[in-house]
Design a protein around this nucleic acid. Structure first.
Length: 562
DNA sequence: GCCGTTTTCGGCCCGACTGTTTTCAGTCG
């Protein structure tokens, strides 16, 4: 059984226990589920070594349950729970306002098991008859079912301009002295559910008044003196919190999260004789100790204050010193772009000129070579012509243009390009575009075979497309190992819909080297390079791990060394 | 059910907002 399947069952057990009002166990199961979900290794291997109980949050009892799942594919404990509580907690729980207590109540009184049961109950006005519920909640349920179908997560790259615009608008108010976006946006997660904004003001009600009346607002979900929530026309939810300047650091820390990081930090606070909340760090008799900045809070607690991108409770709180991460703006150029020669919208010159205006030192042209018709792939004759054009431009323009190609990895792992041309190109970027539905073993072997060639970069390694397509089946650990052995750089594809590799995977690929690439198919795509820097930071990379941060001379040396 | 700079037993993060209520439970982040 796969890690994610096991994690899902553990999460469901947590939900079902919560429904029964069981205390503390749900959190234990959630913790265990999250551990399993984030493993970079196959859990069956860990089980075979007898090391399950060494994993954080997994003790004797949960280890036994995992063993039963691995051995039989089933779990009696889980099936019994489901029999007792046969409702679709996952779906019902997504409706705003529907928590464990109400889901249970609705099941017991109205036999509501599914979303459609819930809809029916609301339409027949049965919900308002229950004690503790009323007309408003009934109406909210119907509204919630409608918007739940719209899907609730947004791609970071696409909402960034809107988020920054709102931040700027709030920052301009004379009542606001500081404003920052917190939450998963600040941690630069690939997908965000909502945007949390924090503002400092001594006149919170005036700020709230302005906030809920912004042009982009479609719906006001809640409005208070310190917290308000709105939904924009595109469905994105924005939460605004107004705090005093003394609280800004603690509030920023608190609302940046992630949740597990915060829970851990609060435990550390308790162990030191403090309590921590969004208003500051306090002694046990409520005396304020710190809170103006995040740094002073972490310092008081004796923990390093890492960048928001690293705050996932995956070991960062145990670090002895802050690692030096690649910085925004450190990347000097791009390793993957497409032009009108294949399926891009702009010429090589237009792309290079735009890159130059962004202050870059180099750009790599990697038009498609291979068998996928829709990409309008180049053959070797056209590659020859393209080489001549790039040579001319390199003389004329003040930016280094590398001649590369994105070459299809064929079904058997060979490249769709002759050995001769593999040698001629500055950059060979190999990617899987066809026969994507292979089994794990075959796909792993195929990719590893490809990397034995003169390949500089493995392009968008997992093939995932956010919200659209799952990653190819493959053993990532083996792929990483093979990349290290063959000096192949792993691509961090910065396209907002790819973000591939993702942060967790980059972190798991210890000891590998990386490149950032925009995969831009036009000049407008080039500015997404900073998303790649964000992923690299989420993967704990320093500048020296990422080839884009090297000088053109050093890059030439690395590429030529193959 | 897990865990240990307070512990092998007894804890387990915490505050704002809403709706339904006359003082609070539930949800949310």
């Amino acid at each position: 059984m796969k890690n994610l399947e096991i994690a899902k069952i553990l999460f469901e057990i947590a939900d079902l226990l919560e429904l029964q009002g069981v205390r503390f166990k749900p959190r234990a199961y959630q913790m265990a589920a999250r551990t399993v979900e984030n493993l970079s290794e196959d859990i069956e291997e860990i089980y075979k070594r007898g090391e399950l109980t060494e994993l954080p949050g997994i003790g004797e009892s949960i280890a036994q349950k995992i063993e039963e799942l691995i051995k039989t594919g089933k779990l009696k404990y889980y099936n019994d729970l489901k029999k007792k509580l046969p409702m679709d907690v996952e779906q019902l729980g997504k409706i705003p306002g529907m928590g464990p207590k109400r889901i249970k109540l609705l099941y017991e009184k109205l036999k509501v098991k599914t979303l459609s049961d819930l809809k029916k109950a609301a339409q027949q006005h049965k919900i308002r008859e229950l004690r503790g519920l009323g007309e408003k909640i009934e109406a909210d349920v119907l509204k919630g079912i409608k918007s739940a179908k719209k899907g609730g997560r947004f791609l970071l790259g696409y909402i960034m301009p809107l988020a920054e615009e709102i931040k700027t608008e709030l920052g301009k108010l004379k009542e606001v002295s500081a404003v920052e976006i917190a939450g998963s946006y600040r941690r630069r997660k690939e997908m965000v559910g909502d945007i949390d904004i924090l503002a400092v003001s001594s006149q919170p009600s005036r700020v709230m008044e302005h906030f809920v009346h912004m042009k982009v607002v479609a719906d006001v979900l809640a409005k208070g003196s310190t917290r308000s929530s709105v939904r924009l026309h595109n469905g994105l939810q924005i939460d605004l919190r107004v705090v005093a300047s003394k609280e800004f650091g603690s509030a920023l820390q608190y609302f940046t999260g992630n949740k597990e990081h915060n829970v851990e930090l609060r435990k550390i606070a308790l162990a030191h004789g403090y309590t921590l909340n969004e208003y500051g760090l306090f002694t046990l008799n409520k005396k304020w100790v710190a809170g103006r900045t995040e740094e002073e809070i972490y310092k008081k607690l004796g923990v390093v204050c890492v960048s928001p991108e690293m705050r996932e409770n995956t070991g960062e709180l145990a670090l002895k010193k802050v690692p030096s991460l690649i910085g925004y703006g450190d990347a000097q150029g791009d390793f993957q772009t497409h032009t009108t020669w294949s399926d891009g919208n702009d010429s090589i010159e237009a792309m290079a000129t735009k890159a130059q205006s962004l202050g870059w030192k180099f750009i790599t042209i990697t038009d498609h070579v291979g068998q996928v018709r829709i990409t309008n792939p180049l053959n070797e004759k056209r590659l020859e012509k393209q080489a001549a054009e790039i040579k001319k431009l390199n003389k004329r323009l003040d930016i280094r243009i590398f001649h590369g190609a994105e070459v299809d990895i064929l079904k058997n792992g060979t490249l769709a390009l002759s050995k001769e041309w593999q040698k001629k190109l500055d950059v060979v970027l190999a990617s899987v575009h066809l026969a994507t539905k292979m089994g794990e073993k075959e796909m792993t072997q195929r990719i590893c075979t490809a990397m034995e060639n003169r390949v500089h970069i493995l392009g968008h390694p997992t093939g995932r497309q956010l919200e659209k397509r799952e990653a190819y089946a493959m053993n990532l650990d083996k792929v990483f190992e093979c990349a290290r052995r063959n000096d192949v750089h792993l691509d961090i594809d910065c396209h907002p819909e790819r973000m591939d590799l993702g942060g967790e995977q980059v972190k798991a690929a210890k000891g590998c080297t990386f490149v950032l690439s925009t995969d831009a198919h036009g000049v407008d795509g080039l500015h997404f390079l900073s998303l790649g820097e964000a992923i690299a930071r989420r993967g704990w990379l320093s500048a020296k791990d990422v080839l884009n941060t090297y000088s053109v001379k050093e890059i030439e040396k690395v590429l030529g060394g193959k």
